[in-house]
Amino acid sequence: MSVQYKFLVLGPMANHNELPGGTTVSFSVFLDKLKKNNIDFEVINTNKVNYKYKGIALIKIYWLFFQKLRKSSHISLHGSDKDYIYLTPVIVFSSKLLGKTVSLRKFAGSFLDVFENLSTPKKLLVKYALSNSNINFFQTKYLIQYFKQYNNNTFWFPTVRNRPNIIIDREKVYQKRFIFLGHIHSEKGIDHILEVSNLLDDSYNIDLYGPLMEEKYNNIDWERYKNIAYKGSLNPSEVYSVLFKYDVLLLPTYWKGEGYPGVIAEAFSLGIPVISTKLEGIKEMVDEGSGILIDVKNVEQLKNAICSFNDKNYKDFSKSALENFEKFDAEIKIDEIIEQIKTIL
């Protein structure tokens, strides 16, 4: 990338007082890759949690944008549902007015439902932004199929993660160690994991990691459940080393906003197969060899999936999971994205 180009990148950065979520991790990975590629850029943080006065955070973001716009060559927005409603129309209009190129990247996989339920004025504004940006990126393929009607320059930008600096043991012995890593919330399938733990024999081990997001989990009596333990939250630097100790990732989620969960990509990077649900985005991530998909809220299927792993088939599952990670490898995928952006500069 020539030094004559300067990127203005807008996206969510982690708050120092909170553990980072999937979107902040994904955005951080993108910024790290820009640095590695020696691309000149400035960042505007769109995570309103980071602003002292959240009520006027949007005004502050607009102010920073207009302040930096003229000195930038390319504007790159990495946005949530609300960002696409309240930021993208202004960003696209202003950037095009000054002859700047614009790329839009949508996090998560629920935007189609949000879009279809927008009021007519808001829907028209989002259509304007999508139609007039130079290039659009969506996290899931089913969103690409729908939104490509507004702009042919619409491409796939999946959740990506860095490949961990860990030597993968391809002869790893299956030991019935299962892990859930994410928000401890009912819509992530936690209640079903708790229920299934009492249906398994004592040879199984299930550990839960993540922040407690609902009050009912603060006072839970863990002694009621066999084979299961809550291990607290992890710092980002601990994720890979902890995941590596387990055999299978459990994610029986039915969270409405689920797209491509980053924890699945992280598990694949370590050769760890997945048990998850048949949500649209997850079906695109997990193929038949790299994991097992079940219906949402189905404890019997969850139990059967857990019991499906054994000494004979585990190595094949692990191998497929590791191979599947290539689609979500930041080193590969972000280079492809940068090359696509180059075509519009």
Rank of each mutant, 00 (worst) to 15 (best):
M1K: 00
Q4E: 15
G11Q: 02
G11A: 03
P12D: 02
M13K: 11
M13H: 04
N15Y: 02
N17W: 14
G22N: 09
S26L: 10
D40W: 05
V43W: 12
N45Y: 07
T46L: 03
N50D: 12
K52E: 15
K54L: 03
G55E: 13
I56D: 06
I56Q: 04
A57Q: 14
L58M: 01
K60A: 13
Y62T: 01
W63I: 11
F66L: 07
Q67F: 02
K68M: 06
L69S: 10
H74G: 03
H74C: 06
I75R: 00
I75T: 00
I75A: 02
I85K: 02
P89V: 10
I91N: 10
V92C: 06
S94E: 08
S95Y: 04
S95G: 09
L98C: 08
L98A: 04
L98T: 14
T101F: 03
S103Q: 14
F107P: 14
D113A: 04
N117P: 13
T120H: 00
P121Q: 06
K123W: 01
L124H: 02
L124G: 01
L130S: 12
S131V: 10
S131E: 15
S133N: 08
F138S: 02
K141E: 01
Y146H: 12
Y146F: 14
Q149L: 09
W156E: 11
F157K: 12
I167F: 02
K172A: 13
Y174W: 03
R177W: 09
F178H: 12
F180V: 11
G182I: 14
S186Y: 01
I190S: 03
S197Y: 07
D201G: 09
S203R: 00
Y204C: 02
D207S: 09
P211M: 09
M213A: 10
E214Y: 02
N218H: 15
I220F: 08
I220T: 10
D221C: 04
W222K: 12
R224M: 05
I228Y: 03
A229R: 15
A229H: 13
A229L: 15
P236Q: 03
E238L: 02
L243H: 02
K245I: 01
V248R: 12
V248L: 10
T253R: 10
G257S: 06
Y260L: 13
F268P: 13
G271P: 07
I272Y: 11
I272G: 09
I294M: 12
K297E: 11
K297L: 07
A305Y: 00
A305K: 01
D311F: 07
N313I: 00
K315G: 01
F317L: 00
S320W: 11
F328H: 14
A330P: 15
I337D: 14
I337K: 15
I341N: 15
